[in-house]
Amino acid sequence: MLWVKTFHILFVVSWFAGLFYLPRIYVNLAQADDPAVRASLLGMAARLYRFMTPLGVLALILGSVLWLHYGIGQGQGWLHAKLLAVLGLIVFHLACRQHLRTFIAGTNRHGHRYFRWFNEIPVLLLLLTLILVVVKPF
């Protein structure tokens, strides 16, 4: 079980690195006027999204193994709340994909301020998840 937990944490941390950095690229994309800079940022964003998606999938798979096979958190309220936070992360990840598609298509309508706020969502979800896992308030 400790190996599964170790790799789950590794993939969660790696996934979060992408979830933190991708919206920062979107901030720069929303401000980019130079076509060369825009093309470079689009390439970075697309590669990062393709890289972080399997990391998130592996984090989810290993988290499911910890929950379903090893019984971690079963019957405890904090786990249900954590699963809602994880669902929020999945929705955020998919929203990142949608924003990437609008940038690629040239149809983005959001400014850099929107993406600066958008960038705070995974921070809040991480804080909530950490509190739930470590403190187990209920």
Rank of each mutant, 00 (worst) to 15 (best):
Leu62Arg: 04
Leu89Lys: 00
Leu42Asn: 07
Gln74Arg: 15
Gly106Leu: 08
Thr102Glu: 13
Leu58Gly: 04
Trp117Asp: 02
Gln76Pro: 01
Gly43Arg: 14
Leu84Tyr: 08
Leu55Glu: 09
Leu66Tyr: 09
Arg109Gly: 08
Ala39Gly: 14
Thr53Tyr: 02
Phe103Asn: 03
Val123Thr: 13
Leu58His: 03
Phe115Met: 05
Leu127Pro: 00
Gly56Met: 12
Gly56Arg: 03
Phe92Trp: 04
Phe51Tyr: 12
Phe118Arg: 01
His80Leu: 13
Gly56Thr: 08
Ala46Ser: 15
Tyr114Val: 05
Phe92Asp: 03
Asp33Ser: 12
Leu126Asn: 00
Gln76Lys: 12
Val27Thr: 14
Asn28Cys: 01
Arg97Leu: 14
Tyr114Gln: 11
Val57Ser: 10
Gly71Met: 13
Asp34Trp: 05
His112Leu: 08
Arg109Glu: 13
Tyr70Val: 10
Arg113Met: 12
Phe115Gln: 04
Ala59Glu: 02
Tyr114Asn: 07
Leu127Tyr: 00
Leu68Asp: 04
Asp34Glu: 10
Gly88Leu: 05
Thr53Asp: 02
Leu58Ser: 11
Ala32Val: 08
Asn108Val: 07
Ala85Gly: 07
Ala59Tyr: 01
Ala105Ser: 06
Ile104Val: 15
Thr102Trp: 05
Arg97Asn: 07
Ser64Asn: 06
His69Leu: 12
Ser64Leu: 12
Gly75Arg: 02
Gly63Arg: 05
Leu68Val: 10
Arg109Phe: 03
Leu62Gln: 06
Asn28Ile: 04
Phe115Tyr: 15
Arg113Asn: 02
Met52Leu: 15
Leu48Arg: 10
Arg38Trp: 12
Leu83Gly: 00
Ala81Lys: 09
Ala95Asp: 09
Met52Gly: 04
His93Ile: 03
Gly56Glu: 09
Gly63Leu: 07
Trp117Pro: 00
Leu55Ile: 13
Gln74Ser: 06
Gly88Met: 05
Leu94Pro: 00
Ile25Ser: 13
Tyr49Cys: 06
Arg116Ser: 11
Arg47Pro: 02
Arg97Trp: 11
Lys82Gln: 04
Gln98Pro: 00
Ser64Met: 11
Gln74Gly: 01
Leu58Tyr: 06
Trp117Cys: 01
Phe115Asp: 06
Ile121Met: 05
Asn28Arg: 13
Ala95Trp: 08
Gly75Pro: 06
Asn119Glu: 14
Gly106His: 06
Gln76Ala: 09
Asn108Gly: 03
Met52Phe: 15
Glu120Met: 04
Ile72Gly: 00
Ala81Val: 07
Asn28Asp: 14
Gly111Tyr: 08
Thr53His: 05
Arg101Met: 10
Leu29Asn: 11
Asn108Met: 07
Phe51Arg: 08
Gly43Ala: 08
Leu126Arg: 00
Ala39Asn: 12
Ile104His: 07
Glu120Tyr: 00
Val57Thr: 12
Leu100Ile: 11
Ala81Tyr: 05
Ser64Glu: 04
Ala45Ser: 15
Leu66Ser: 03
Ala30Pro: 02
Leu48Lys: 01
Gln31Tyr: 01
Ala36Gln: 12
Leu60Pro: 03
Ile104Asn: 06
Gly75Glu: 04
Leu62Asp: 06
Val123Cys: 02
Arg50Ile: 11
Leu62Cys: 05
Leu55Val: 07
Trp67Gln: 08
Gln98Asp: 13
